[in-house]
């Protein structure tokens, strides 16, 4: 492993949402800070900086990971996708649209992280049960929605209905 001088800023080049981007970072700079304040990719939100809340989740080479527990220099040369890259030419993905229709977000601070986790997970688990989905979502904290609408949106977009809504 390359040793990087602690007091120096090092060039870090990533493919951010398909575009090559270069910035500079000290070895200790968090990926979340690098994305937000060096590259101006603000959509990655920071909610706890200790890996519990999930707001900062991005995809690194396709895999959902916490940007607050990753150093910027670790992703040099790798692909990083954030929520800014989900919509194509102004059209939201079906998942984003389902979040909108079901009112699955309120303040929106946790939303980007949840969408990035789902973007990764639904590729591998395209038809989750509600229990599986709730288990996966438990890696994200949302204080506004009570999660019900998020569950509904995901079950809807995966062509299923929720079981737990009962009157």
């Amino acid at each position: 492993m390359t040793a990087l001088a602690a007091g120096t800023r090092h060039p870090v080049t990533i493919t951010l949402n398909g575009q090559p981007r270069t910035g500079h970072a000290h070895p200790r700079t968090l990926l979340s800070d690098f994305l937000r304040h060096e590259l101006g990719a603000h959509s990655t939100r920071v909610g706890c900086e200790h890996g519990v809340c999930g707001a900062c989740t991005v995809r690194i080479d396709g895999v959902a990971q916490r940007a607050c527990l990753t150093l910027a220099v670790q992703v040099d040369g790798r692909r990083v996708d954030t929520v800014e890259g989900l919509a194509r030419e102004g059209r939201m993905t079906a998942l984003q649209d389902a979040f909108h229709r079901h009112h699955a977000l309120q303040c929106g601070f946790c939303t980007a992280g949840i969408l990035m986790s789902l973007a990764d997970w639904l590729v591998r688990v395209p038809k989750p049960t509600e229990a599986e989905l709730r288990d996966m979502l438990s890696g994200h904290l949302c204080r506004c929605t009570g999660y019900a609408a998020i569950v509904r949106a995901v079950m809807d977009v995966t062509g299923q209905t929720t079981e737990s809504v009962h009157v």
Binding site: S43, T82, V83, E84, L86, A87, M92, H100, G108, T111
Partner: peptide
């Protein structure tokens, strides 16, 4: 009615104080 706020929040363009 679904919210007018959502588009900015879902696509990441929303600006919070730290942004």
């Amino acid at each position: 009615v679904p919210r007018v706020e959502d588009a900015a929040l879902l696509t990441g363009s929303a600006r919070y104080a730290d942004d």
